[in-house]
Design a protein around this nucleic acid. Structure first.
Length: 841
DNA sequence: CTACTCGCCAAAGGCG
DNA sequence: CGCCTTTGGCGAGTAG
């Protein structure tokens, strides 16, 4: 009897069956379990069985198994439909090839419709068997997996469920299951980090993993089990090592260094370690380390049975264990923004480590040859350790999150780690549709729900978005910021907005219109999307968000709850966006448009209510209002009024000692009572602004954080002018380095794709390319503004004499203008005053 | 997902 | 026709 955490479900082509990888905690290993062979891949079509049976291309197809009649509920039409299930022997017979049944049916019978034919079989299996990846299962001999339900105290469950807005039977049942998924903690799986170095003589040329021509000279292996020392396997003779260097290297002195005279023996040792590893972690392993090792091993004549590295359609993994490529994980935009707060821009080991761990990579040796083997060993092992640290950062936070994402999305760990939020939500939705015997609609059917009717403010956008209230310029003391907690998810739940409820087929529902758009919402059914999103919202806002900050709870529980509330946030923040994303298969523009319209309605009504109460609104954006506090009761009264008139909670988020707004939207500053300064949207804070300007801006903020009274503010203004003046003087006298002057801007696409214009960073990048450097998408280009013909130079090629001082002066002034014009100092005053004052020196 | 700011680019428009 | 100014919009980064 095998019991373990379900890590992944996949299709084993040789055994022709679905298989599962279970993690056995007690033994720290992954066990493969072959699942029920009775379950087969299939698709649905509206061609009747008797007609299908007469199609030789179908019944004669080598993968064809049988046809069955099935009843499904078509949620778009709200009727039951009888369809034909075409069952096949293997997944590729259904889709993925030109000769797959999916294509054959469409070709032979052009008018026919096909559903559910592009779902990956591993996921189809999960839906039909109601498996929840990330949960504990017991494997029976029959090939069935049985969920081991975690115990949750009834009291706790009741308390969490009490936070739900909808308490009907269906909602309670779904919510109970979700609470079960969220309450069971993740196992701490031993992670093995790997990094390899390959011999090269040419600088900056990455060896091709398909060819695997060069020798592997170093393999770093580091385990999250701290009792196991990090290991470095080297292609060298022991006397090649520089013992003195090793003794002084903090990285190498604690490592186990093993030398091999033979590359084959070196690789075989690494493969032996990989064979046993339950969880492999790399940085870019899918594009480099794993394919390189695999191909190199094959080249050296190592038999396939001894190579535990498996190539899948779009990733590399282990035969037994699972592989997580951190490059893929950190490229995930939802994780980047909502979990790591957008702290890194470039997805390189160096940039991510620096942003998250505060550690940078070592500078690589000039040449990767056996002569410099000790230096290579240090470099390689350091990368390995960084990779490991990124994975285990903050008590294994990433692993906890991945488990929660698996459970919520019902995707295997490798799918979660390599695909984005829209795929996660899609899978979550498909799982819920399938379990209810609802027909999963095709993208075309969902698109037929209607078109958008509003016009966006920005050219090229599809529909009108949120309202940004024009700020009242100036400094205001005692300001409250109120906001709707999870506005869009609240709207989705409250107004039941979903692709099946919008513009529904019932004529009785047509009176249930949404303001500003002519769409209506079904009065009869709630919709799947509002059900799930509503529950996720209510339990995050009502329970996990506060529980994660509850100091009375033990540290490990709090850490788990932090992961829970973060993972819920990721799903909730994306729930509105996906409806308007063309890449999402349930893409439904009227849904996205209606959610935005109701958001505008909520903020507009709140504004009116506040005005009617005589409350002064200083600013607002999408889901927030900044108001001048007259008295404590004011805020409470406003909250109550909005709750009773709107049925939504606008809650106090923050109180500012004072705020500074200019006439610009999305551009302000607020100082809290404890002295923390929130700066939003200002150039002085943006990451592409030259460092000397950012630092001057930072000093200005230091002045502002100490301001307590309007009088203080006046004094601070003068000191800020002094700061600008000082920065300007340093600039004019060129007492700045090129690094301090650099604009750091990211290349968002390949150089040759900039067709309409040539922005400055692209000009600089082209100069680097001409010099033979590789400038790939995602790279951050550091350039300075120069007086040369092009006007720019990458810092690598520039000298301080070429700097265009006037341009920098302009940039410095305009950065501070955002701050100072709100304080009554305009651009001209700043310029002239700075210039005049300067003449005295 | 849309809204907004800023600097720059490149095409359009005005002028002699 | 060339020079100069104006202007639309591209691209990056950000707010929510």
């Amino acid at each position: 009897m095998v019991e373990g955490y379900l890590l992944s479900v996949y299709y084993d082509r040789e055994r022709e069956t679905a298989a599962a990888k279970l993690y056995i905690e007690e033994e720290n290993e992954v066990r493969i379990v072959y699942l029920s062979r009775e379950h087969r891949p299939y698709l649905l079509t509206n061609i009747p069985p008797e007609k299908l049976s007469k199609m030789p291309e179908v019944v004669g197809h080598k993968g064809f198994l049988r046809v069955e009649e099935v009843t499904k509920h078509d949620i778009l039409k709200d009727i039951d439909v009888t369809l034909t299930k075409v069952v096949a022997k293997d997944p590729l017979a259904i889709g993925g090839r030109a000769e797959s049944l999916r294509e054959v049916i469409k070709r032979v019978s052009p008018g026919a419709k096909v559903w559910e034919a592009d779902i990956k079989y591993r996921n189809c299996y999960i839906y039909d068997k109601l498996l929840i990846p990330g949960m504990r299962y017991r494997a029976a001999n029959s090939g069935e997996l049985e969920l081991i339900k975690p115990r949750i105290s009834e009291e706790k469950e009741r308390e969490i469920l009490s936070k739900l807005e909808d308490k009907d039977k269906e909602a309670l049942q779904v919510a109970k299951e979700i609470v079960m998924l969220l309450e069971e903690e993740a196992p701490s799986i031993e992670a093995l980090a790997l990094d390899i170095e390959v011999e090269t003589t040419q600088h900056n040329v990455i060896p091709d993993p398909k060819e695997a021509r060069q020798r592997v000279i170093s393999i770093g292996l580091a385990s999250s089990d701290s009792s196991k020392p990090p290991r470095i396997l080297l292609l060298a003779k022991s006397h090649d090592l520089d013992e003195e260097y090793i003794k002084q290297s903090s990285i190498l002195k604690n490592a186990e260094i093993v030398t091999y005279a033979d590359e084959k023996a070196l690789i075989m040792e690494a493969l032996k370690v990989l064979e046993k590893a339950p969880l492999l972690v790399t940085f870019n392993g899918t594009n480099f380390d794993l394919p390189y090792l695999r191909h190199r091993a094959q080249k050296l004549g190592i038999p396939d049975s001894d190579i535990p590295i498996v190539a899948k359609r779009d990733h590399y993994t282990l035969r037994k264990g699972v592989h997580i490529d951190l490059h893929k994980v950190f490229s995930n935009k939802s994780l980047k923004n909502y979990v790591y707060g957008g702290r890194y821009r470039e997805v390189s080991l160096d940039a991510v480590s620096q942003a998250i761990l505060g550690e940078r990579k070592r500078t690589p040796p000039k040449e990767f040859t056996t002569e410099s083997i000790t230096r290579i060993a240090e470099y390689c092992l350091y990368d390995t350790l960084l990779t490991l640290k990124l994975f285990t950062y903050r008590n294994n936070m990433l692993l906890k999150l991945l488990f929660l994402f698996m459970r919520i999305s019902k995707l295997s760990i490798e799918d979660v780690a390599s695909t984005g939020i829209s795929n996660w939500i899609k899978n979550m939705m498909y799982f819920e549709l399938r379990r209810r015997r609802y027909l999963i609609p095709t993208p075309e059917e969902v698109l037929n729900k209607g078109r958008t009717v509003t016009t966006a403010k920005i050219k090229g956008k599809k529909y009108l978005g949120a309202i940004v209230i024009k700020p009242k310029p100036g400094a205001f003391f005692n300001v409250a910021c109120l906001d709707f907690a999870s506005l869009y998810p609240s709207i989705i739940r409250k107004y039941r907005i979903s692709f099946e409820t919008i513009n529904c087929p019932h004529s009785a529902c047509k009176s249930n219109r949404i303001p500003e758009v002519n769409h209506w919402i079904c009065k009869k059914v709630r919709g799947i999307f509002p059900l799930i999103v509503g529950i996720l919202r209510d339990i995050r806002v009502g329970w996990y968000k506060s529980a994660s900050k509850d100091k009375r709870l033990p540290e490990d529980i709090r850490s788990w709850y932090e992961a829970v509330q973060q993972s819920l946030k990721v799903f909730l923040n994306a729930s509105y966006g996906v409806s308007g994303a063309e890449t999402y298969p349930l893409y439904c523009p009227p849904v996205a448009e209606s959610i935005a319209a109701l958001g505008r309605y909520a903020i507009q009504k709140s504004l009116e209510i506040a005005s009617a109460m005589g409350v002064e609104v200083l600013y607002g954006d999408t889901d927030s209002l900044f108001i001048k506090i007259r008295s404590e009761e004011d805020v409470e009264k406003l909250e109550k009024e909005i709750e009773s008139k709107l049925g939504m909670d606008l809650e106090l988020d923050k109180i500012y000692r004072y705020t500074v707004f200019s006439e610009r939207k999305k551009n302000y500053l607020g100082v809290s009572e404890d002295g923390t300064v929130d700066v939003k949207g200002m150039t002085g804070k943006k990451r592409n602004t030259p460092r000397f300007i950012r630092e001057a801006f930072q000093r200005a903020l230091e002045e502002l954080r100490n301001v307590k009274t309007p009088d203080d503010l006046e004094k601070a203004k003068l000191r800020i002018i002094e700061i600008v003046r000082e920065a300007r003087r340093k600039l004019v006298e060129k007492r700045l380095t090129l690094e301090e002057l650099a604009f750091e801007v990211m290349l968002s696409k390949p150089l040759d794709k900039y067709e309409k214009t040539t922005p400055q960073h692209v000009k600089a990048a082209k100069m680097l390319q001409e010099r033979g450097e590789v400038v790939a998408t995602g790279k951050i280009i550091a350039y300075v503004k120069t007086k040369t013909r092009e006007g720019v130079k990458p810092i690598e090629l520039a000298t301080i004499d070429e700097i265009d001082v006037e341009k920098y002066e302009e940039y410095l002034f305009s950065t501070f203008e955002q701050l100072l014009d709100a304080l009554g100092i305009d651009y001209e005053t700043l310029r002239t005053k700075t210039a005049t004052l300067d003449q005295f020196f």
